[in-house]
Design a protein around this nucleic acid. Structure first.
Length: 264
DNA sequence: GTTCTCGGCCG
DNA sequence: CGGCCGAGAAC
């Protein structure tokens, strides 16, 4: 007899998500149960951290109880406690090893739709369409990114990027810092063109008119000079990378040569 | 190779 | 005690 695995709908998550509870039937932990979730595309999730890594900023799992699959408002208290503790330990100079929200800026750890251009221009790689369709977002979620900095290996703060004068932010937090995060996130999260907020109404009352598919940034104009300037920067960056790789290769070659001589 | 399952760590 | 994830077992 085959034990039917019940995959139940989960109202607290976006449509199509399923929840499953498996009872352990042997061993010391017999009787205990494990809870799993399945995305609309069928991917299995076995913990809350795994879930929030995947969902990114599209869903606030702060009050989500993984075991029951329900939103538990009582848990909001604990979320605030956690934030306090984080700020405390950060001010003591401990490195922030938290990999939960908000999303990281420098690497796309989330699966994104990718178009691979090979010989024939119509060829495409398979993508997770459930993930590719943009989901509703919280207004002004980018504010959570405030204060994030990129560090090098010695934990020195890297110089932040300077933004062109033409870029101006929209919304309650008009700092350049958040603007940069908002744009960087938009470029990472969406494959659609980034135009900024094209409706001028959004500037007057963003809470109503904000286009959540676009960053908190006024519409901007990109001139030919901007493009040329950027091309130059990319070119220079590639040159220095090329030089670094070459130097590294030479160093390795020299090292292995020395090793060989040592053995002979 | 992938999926299932339980152990065990750690907060 | 329970959440989370590693790793061996099963397929």
């Amino acid at each position: 007899m085959i034990m039917e695995r019940k995959r139940l709908d989960c109202p607290a998550l976006p449509p199509g998500w399923k929840k499953e509870e498996v009872i352990r039937k042997s061993g010391l932990s017999a009787g205990k149960s494990d809870v799993y979730y399945y995305s609309p595309s069928g991917k299995k999730f076995r913990s809350k951290p795994q879930l929030s890594r995947y969902l990114g900023n599209t869903v606030d799992l702060g009050s989500f109880d993984f075991r029951t699959g329900k939103m538990m408002p009582s848990k909001l208290q604990k979320t605030k406690q956690r934030l306090r503790n984080e700020n405390l330990s950060l001010s003591k100079g401990k490195p922030d090893l938290n990999t939960a929200l908000p999303i990281r800026q420098t690497a796309s750890i989330f699966k994104q739709p990718v178009t691979k251009v090979v010989n024939h221009p119509t060829n495409k790689v398979k993508t997770d369409m459930q993930r590719a369709t943009e989901q509703p977002r919280q207004l002004f979620w980018e504010r959570r990114l405030k204060g994030l900095r990129s560090l090098d290996v010695t934990e020195e703060v890297l110089r932040t990027m300077e933004l062109p004068k033409g870029l101006q932010s929209v919304g309650p937090d008009a700092s350049d810092e958040t603007l940069l995060s908002a744009i960087a996130s938009a470029l990472h999260t969406s494959s659609a063109p980034i135009t900024g907020q094209t409706s001028t109404a959004a500037e007057k009352n963003p809470a109503i008119w904000l286009n959540t598919g676009q960053p908190l940034c006024k519409a901007f104009i990109v001139t030919d000079e901007d493009i040329k300037e950027q091309e130059l920067k990319v070119h220079q960056a590639r040159r220095s990378l090329e030089e670094a790789l070459l130097a590294d290769g030479l160093a390795r070659a020299a090292e292995s040569t020395r090793d060989m001589e040592g053995k002979a």
